[in-house]
Design a protein around this nucleic acid. Structure first.
Lengths: 243, 243
DNA sequence: TCAAGTTGTCTATGATAATAGACAACTTGA
DNA sequence: TCAAGTTGTCTATTATCATAGACAACTTGA
């Protein structure tokens, strides 16, 4: 690989450079909209070839973190997704409104039983059978958040299989005859990403995440689904609607 | 890279496999001393070529986490027993402190006469009658070391029979009224196990051993016993206390 | 003793990573 | 307009990664 990487770590050099630059952006050393150092300069600071830097920058550009302008320089994109918190929140609409293409993907679906907290949120009894759905949601190709959703297994039998094909919670609910739903409660905290979510979100370890606990109810107020979503803090900002 | 890794993550496949196996060990899915699945089986579970698995295992073996045995399998290395070298060294205490069960076992006891070196160590005259005790010490079921101990036959008559029943040098000395003792000298070398010790230590021929020559003395400094112990290098590490 | 299963080693091939150099195309500020 | 500095693209070379197949060497249990 290179003189520095005599250990042959199994991690490509361009990836180390890309991670370094991304960290620089995340930590604010390179502000949004600002010009990055030239490719030559980056190559010198990391002691790698310019082409390796270009590979790293290409990976970042692919994810929309930077944007190269020929003859001028490479700039940090300022583009946290604005995520309004309303009672009627649809991931696909929010991302689509930003000119990006929303995608959902099932990670895992399994049986579960209601803990006391989950039972309370869903209006069920402790120990009631649940379907647990782990999914990741992306804008363009960048993963935005991973969610763990719980639904009553009795009211939504085979919910995992349905979600696997429709890839959208809205469509899943539709499939079970739920025409409309609204957000009943939202609780936001922050934390540090764990290894599992880091891989799913394509995040470096140690990066902050926004944790959102939410419950959706039908128009009559009956709980449908409760979720814990972990958002990559550097890719999204929540807008609270006042009034 | 591979069919799964269409994204070209910048992390080598073998590294992902190695990390996966290491996590398995850390989480106890593969217990210490246990055999890992065969290379072919690992290759199938990760959907990867066998050579890629071998690259991963080589990296883990390099770090001493696993050990491959040709024709048999690849095994999770036992955590080496940390063996602090102090003036007050008791095998049973050290092994017990590691959460393992210490055991001693007599191999052989016989009469001997003091060579010049043994006589000097024990403060006797050359040719003085000695008791020679061969024993093996184990932690759980793994043999850790074999020792040859020499004591004065005049001061410790019938020492061999006593050791056969109490199975501990500390208790043997207690039996003869020695309430306390300490390590007067310790000399460490390394070598290759011979056929006799290999059988006793359950070691393959050609494996390295740590050879420790030591003499214990009573609180007044009078020599009690001198030993030559051979430790299976792969099961123990000596800690030198600094200061 | 033998067959099945295991790790070790060899050759071979194609894809990717990293290096190097050269030049084109473009932007910016003087 | 021009020079300096920037990104984009091309060719080329070497090393590593990953796959594939074959067989040797060895262990284990029947």
């Amino acid at each position: 690989m290179s003189l520095q990487d005599t250990s042959s770590s199994g991690v490509a050099l361009w990836r180390l450079v890309a991670d370094g630059i991304e960290r620089g952006i995340a930590e604010g050393r390179f502000a949004a909209g600002e010009k990055l150092p030239g490719e030559m300069e980056i190559a010198e600071t990391y002691r790698v070839n310019r082409h390796t830097v270009r590979r790293a920058l290409a990976a970042l550009a692919e994810r929309g973190l930077v944007r190269a302008e020929r003859g001028s320089g490479t700039y940090v994109e300022e583009q946290k997704i604005a995520y309004p918190l309303r009672s009627r929140t649809r991931f696909s609409e929010i991302v689509g409104a930003g000119g990006r293409e929303p995608r959902g993907q099932l990670i895992d679906a399994s049986q579960d039983v209601a803990s006391r907290e989950l039972a309370r949120e869903l209006g069920l009894k402790t120990g009631a059978p649940l379907v647990r759905i782990e999914s990741v949601r992306l804008a363009d190709r960048a993963p935005i958040c991973v969610s763990t959703a719980w639904l009553s297994a009795e009211r939504f039998p085979g919910a995992g299989d349905v979600f696997a094909s429709v890839r959208s919670m809205t469509k899943l609910l539709e499939h079970f005859g739920v025409r409309d739903y609204r957000r009943a409660s939202t609780r936001i905290t922050a934390g540090i990403v764990d290894a599992t979510d880091a891989a799913r979100l394509d995040l470096a370890l140690g990066r902050p995440i926004l944790v959102v606990d939410s419950t959706d109810v039908d128009p009559d107020g009956r709980p449908l689904v409760t979720k814990r979503s972990r958002f990559a803090a550097e890719r999204v900002e929540f807008l609270v609607e006042n009034g």
